Amino acid sequence: MGKLWLVALVFMAVACGETPSSSASPGQPVGVPANSGGATPSPSTVTPVGNTINPRKVPWISAKPTDDGTALNVVWWSGVEPCNVLDRVEVAETADTVTVTLWEGHDRRQPDAMCIEIAIQKQTRVRLPAPLGDRKVVDGAR
């Protein structure tokens, strides 16, 4: 019986131990494997649905212009649907800047849904009223 107890204890210690492939580095976004060399998976493409519950501003991590400068591909970290859906994108332009504000909320069609807490990288294409040119792109959520 004593040997069985010792074997069970060893299995528990091994099962609970942290392996290099499952640990996250400090400052690394959740959901990115630590051994991925910093590479992130391709973002999920989403479009605004509008009329969500409790919409809030969401900071984005990049906004890259298309080759012709008439749109931006905006990327951000989010959660799973239906708890985190893109409600709308607001664009405010001046001669020097283009401010892009993303709004996310809970899908109104599933108000009682519960979602797991996991980070997902998302992207959306934002059409600009005028080509970007030399203007700076600013995050309206920051």
Rank of each mutant, 00 (worst) to 15 (best):
L128D: 04
K57R: 15
A130M: 04
K3V: 03
P129Y: 05
V126T: 03
A95I: 04
V137E: 13
L102H: 09
V91P: 09
V49I: 15
I61P: 02
S21E: 15
W60L: 04
P48M: 02
M114K: 15
P20H: 08
A39E: 12
G69D: 09
A71V: 01
P29K: 13
G79F: 08
D112C: 01
V100W: 10
P65G: 02
V30Y: 05
V14F: 11
L6R: 11
Q28S: 13
A15V: 00
V98C: 05
D107N: 14
P48N: 07
R108S: 14
R108K: 15
V74P: 00
I61R: 13
R56G: 04
M12C: 11
P59E: 06
E117N: 12
R109I: 00
I116Q: 14
S42Q: 13
G38H: 06
K136W: 01
I116T: 14
R108G: 00
S42R: 11
V91M: 09
I53C: 02
S78R: 06
A95P: 02
P55M: 07
E93P: 00
G37R: 06
A95K: 13
V74Q: 02
R56W: 07
V126I: 05
S44P: 00
G27N: 05
W60E: 04
N54Q: 12
D139K: 10
M114P: 00
M114D: 11
I118Y: 10
V89F: 06
M114F: 08
N51E: 14
A13T: 04
T94D: 11
P20D: 10
G2N: 13
A39F: 09
D87G: 09
L128N: 07
G69R: 02
P29C: 14
V14N: 02
L128V: 06
R88G: 03
A15T: 01
A13F: 05
P55I: 03
S25P: 00
A71R: 06
G105Y: 03
H106V: 06
D96R: 11
R108A: 15
T40R: 13
W76T: 03
D139F: 09
D68V: 01
I118G: 12
L86Y: 06
T101V: 04
L4Q: 05
L102P: 11
M12V: 12
A130L: 10
P43V: 10
G105D: 02
P131F: 10
D67H: 04
V100S: 09
I118S: 14
T70A: 13
S78W: 04
V91A: 08
T101S: 15
Q110W: 03
S44E: 15
M114R: 13
Q110P: 00
T94K: 07
P65T: 01
R135W: 02
A113I: 02
P48E: 04
V14K: 05
W5I: 07
L132Y: 02
S25G: 11
R108E: 13
D134Y: 00
Q123C: 08
L72T: 03
A71C: 01
